[in-house]
Simulated scan of single mutants.
Amino acid sequence: MEKAIGEILSEWFAKDLPELVEREMDVPIEGGQVVALVGPRRAGKTSLLYQVAKRLLREGYNRRNLAYIDFEDVRLGSLGSSHFSVFLKSISEHLEEKEGEGKIVLLLDEIQRVEGWESWVRTLHNFGKYWIAVTGSSSRLSTAEIATQLRGRYIPRLVLPFSFREFLRLKGERTDPTAISTPEGRGRILRLLREYLRWGGFPDVAKAAGEDRKAELLRVYRDTIFYRDVVDRFRVRDVSSLEAFSRMLGESLGKAFSISKAEKSFRSAGIKKSKRTLSEYLRYFESAFFLFTVEKMGNKARERALQPKKVYPIDPGIYGIYT
């Protein structure tokens, strides 16, 4: 295992960092707390780690002051809690503290694959010499789970698909007011706005050529979120009822969604599902970053809680899957 970690770090020192669309997000890794990047899968969490690395290199860090480690690397497949000493020895051997600051930056991607990862991160943080950012699969690492595991030592950052401004930057368009100062500029922006509203801002979807490929990617994302981030993560046994509930949600995107009406729909189909179970189903989809809910405005919390919530997709492209 020590050899594998050493190889990965040596490859990092020689690796060319990818060209990126600059995300409009602050990742305050220098603040002393662990930064945890969470959000829907394929939204660009790994790219954001590379963005942090590129920023630090511009600010005077060198490659031996920081490291990006992908724990999905097959060579680290057997890495577990018993290997912490080996990991610590390897990074101490290959990395060095930034002169004048005494810090080493660790960018740990898909950290949840390491058994006992939370103890690793807490221990590294307690040493005081490491600035740490972590990402994890939404099927294994949620904001609530990170809060439990890291116990106040972290700052969460929700990574969503591209905003429209970031989407324009990907397409090579200016994002300042002069971009719409001419009829041609306004026409291009309106055309790209229609594309964004139809296909959304998931990076690979936005980059994909052709509508068939974009639609295919979105369907894959939907199915992966459903089976891995909801069914597997929450150990749902009645998958057919969950699928029916998912279709109800899809047909209600942008509208008020009533748990009571959903319960009646199941009952009319001869399926007994309590309102509590259906409320849990809704929470599962929110936890998986598939959608979010908005309460009806009101002065009293009880009144707001009793009213149907509106449901919105995490990305505009999800609308198209159901229409």
Rank of each mutant, 00 (worst) to 15 (best):
Q112A: 04
E22R: 13
L20G: 02
L141S: 06
S138H: 02
S10Q: 13
T178D: 11
L150G: 05
L124D: 10
W131K: 10
G201N: 07
R165N: 04
L253A: 05
D212C: 00
I91Y: 03
V230F: 02
A179C: 02
V86C: 00
K3E: 14
W12T: 07
L56T: 08
H125E: 01
N62P: 00
P308T: 09
S81I: 15
V38G: 01
E184P: 00
R194F: 07
E24D: 15
I111G: 09
I69W: 03
L170T: 11
E166P: 08
G32I: 05
A262H: 04
D26E: 15
I91Q: 02
S10N: 14
P183A: 09
T178W: 11
F290Q: 08
D109W: 05
R113S: 11
V236L: 01
S137Y: 06
L57P: 09
H83W: 06
E263A: 15
R113T: 04
L197E: 10
P161F: 06
S241C: 10
F292G: 05
I29P: 10
K54P: 01
H83Y: 11
G44Y: 06
S119Y: 08
R23A: 07
V114W: 05
L306K: 14
P177M: 03
D26I: 10
G201Y: 09
V21F: 02
Y130I: 12
E19H: 07
T277G: 00
F292Y: 15
M25V: 15
S92L: 13
Y130S: 06
K296W: 00
I314Q: 11
D109M: 06
E30T: 12
A256H: 08
G152C: 05
E97H: 07
G172A: 07
P161Q: 09
I189Y: 01
R276L: 13
I259A: 01
M248C: 03
L49I: 09
A215L: 14
Y319F: 15
F257V: 06
E22I: 12
G254H: 09
V121F: 08
V34F: 10
A208D: 08
E93Q: 13
G128I: 10
L37P: 08
K103I: 14
T323K: 13
W117P: 02
T175C: 02
E99Q: 13
E243L: 13
G32F: 05
